[in-house]
Amino acid sequence: MNGRRWSPMLLALALSALPLGCTADEKPSAPTAPVRPAPSPRAHLRGLQGAVQVKRATADDWSPAQEDLPLFENDKVRTEAGARADLVFASDGGTVHLGSDSLIGIAETRPRPGQQRTDLTVLRGRIDAELEKPAAQSLSVTTPSATIQAGREIVFQ
C-alpha cells in the first residue's frame, strides 16, 4: 500500500530533476528562424519630375517611382532625360538632388554602434548634395572612380 503511494511522488521528483524542455517523452522541436527586424528605409523619394524609375534590390524589373517612396539598401533609382528627383535620407535628413539621365543606388552600409551612415552610389549622371548641418550629418557617395565624403563622419580609407 505504502509502496504504491510513494511511487508517483518519486516519479514526480525524478521528473523535476530533469532539465527543463528535455523530457524523455518530448519530441525535439523544429529550429525556429530568428526574427529579423523589418528593414527600415534609408531614404525617401520626393519632388519627382518626369520619368523616374525604381528597381528594388529583390526585383528584376524597373517600375515607376512614386512620391515619398521609401528606398532600402541596394535599391536603384534612375531618371530619364529631363527628369528629376530628390532623395531625403532618413537617418539625418541629408538631401540629394538627382539630375536627369542619372542612375544611383542606395548602398549597403555597415551599421556601427551609435553612428548611422548615409551611403549612395552614383553610377551615371549628376547629383547635387546638401547637408544643412554638416557638423551633425554625413554623406558618403561612391562612384566607379572615387569616394566622396562630406559632413561629420569622415573616414579615411
Binding site: 551615371r124 549628376r126 566607379p144
Partner: peptide
C-alpha cells in the same frame, strides 16, 4: 553651416567630377 557639393559621373562611368 550648410554644405553643398555636386558629383558628376560620365556616361561611361570613367571619370568623376566633384
Amino acid at each position: 553651416q550648410s554644405s553643398a557639393f555636386s558629383v558628376e559621373v560620365g556616361a561611361d562611368g570613367g571619370a568623376t567630377i566633384v
